[in-house]
Simulated assay, not measured.
Amino acid sequence: MTEHNGRTSEPILDPDLEIVDSHHHLFDRPTGRYMFEDYLADASAGHNIASSVYVETQAMARTYGPAQLRAIGEVEFANGVAAMSDSGGYGPCRVSAAIVGYADLTVGESVGEFLDLALSTAPDRFRGVRQILIDHPSEAPYRYITHRPPSGLIRRPGLVSGLRELGKRELTFDAAVLHHQLPELSRLADSVPETTMVLNHLGLAIAMETNAEESHAIFRCWRDSLHDLARRPNVVCKIGGLGLPFWGFGLESRDSKAGSDELAEIWRPYVETAVEAFGAHRCMMESNFPPDARSCGFVPLWNALKSVTEAFSASERTALFSRTARRVYRIPSVGQADVRGHRGRGSGSPPALIL
């Protein structure tokens, strides 16, 4: 394997399999840059990425106006990227076909003002909100989070009211939590059955700085909590984020990035557990790029996910790689996309942002 533009070159597995990348970011910060042309370069490296879902990082927020509405700048930015992509001048991949923005849902019913503004700003693409709820007693995970959430955010009284405002508008909630918070997320899902929740990154079984015995115990706790969460019909699961340091795999600290065979071996128990818990029709694959670029290239990442699921039925694989994301985020199909051969600038070094 060779390295070029931060991506590991491998033969593409199942190159015709259509993919809707259900989670990626775009931003330009002093700590890192990953913009439209960078994602295009990764998405055109050989896999058939038909569409993508833009997920917030609180980038491009306005610097003026009421604080509660400033995040509309990111929705405007993502919608502009999507308009550029829809022009067809940058290849057939529809980048940011759905937009998940940021809002502080703990303000309760008053978040409706922002949601209505976002819907009027991007009526064809705004599909929901993500507010990171990660909470941990140690400082370890916060080294990799750009915007540290307040402690106890998942228990704020106004959060349930804010989530209900999403449900009223048929908008989704992307939930970023750690594995020990999954029971709290289950209770939250029970309180707002009308709101679809999208679990980010499989619920992040945090096993950083643990020994083998501790890591196995964490896996069992994560597995059991994930199965319990999956009993809530209003929750779906994103499979990805496995390149993040939280899992304790240690891939991000190596001199060379892992290839797809190694990734598939490490990731298989987590992917199979999620599909077993939720079923393929409630799971969707994500690249989580560029944060996952700390551990692997874009091509090996998708090769690994394809390899792990190669024994699944055709219907299950279609659900995992495109159909679930299209349904949950209401992404229309624009024909069989094939972005292979289109060239972009390529991604650089992975940025500080890790979610």
Rank of each mutant, 00 (worst) to 15 (best):
L244I: 13
S87N: 10
F249S: 03
R340E: 11
E310F: 10
R268Q: 07
I49Y: 00
V107R: 15
V95Y: 05
R345S: 11
S51G: 00
Y142D: 01
I134M: 13
S215F: 07
F298W: 11
F27S: 00
A41M: 02
S295F: 00
R155K: 15
F219V: 05
D255T: 12
E18W: 12
A207Y: 08
R156W: 13
Y270H: 06
D42T: 05
D38W: 06
L244A: 14
A293F: 07
V334M: 15
G32I: 05
R148P: 13
M208N: 06
R330L: 09
L242E: 07
P245L: 03
G250H: 05
L251S: 14
V81N: 01
T31Q: 14
D292S: 05
P123S: 00
N288F: 12
C237R: 03
A264G: 11
S322H: 14
G88P: 08
A319W: 15
R268S: 11
P141S: 04
Y102S: 01
R33N: 10
E272T: 08
T31K: 11
I99Y: 04
G88D: 07
N48R: 10
R340M: 13
P351V: 13
D228V: 13
P66M: 03
S186C: 11
S110Y: 10
H342L: 09
G348R: 03
A61T: 14
A304E: 02
E139R: 08
V81M: 06
G73V: 00
R29E: 14
F321H: 03
F219W: 06
T57C: 10
G46N: 01
R231N: 08
D190T: 12
E165W: 00
K257A: 10
V275T: 02
V299K: 01
D38Q: 13
D14M: 07
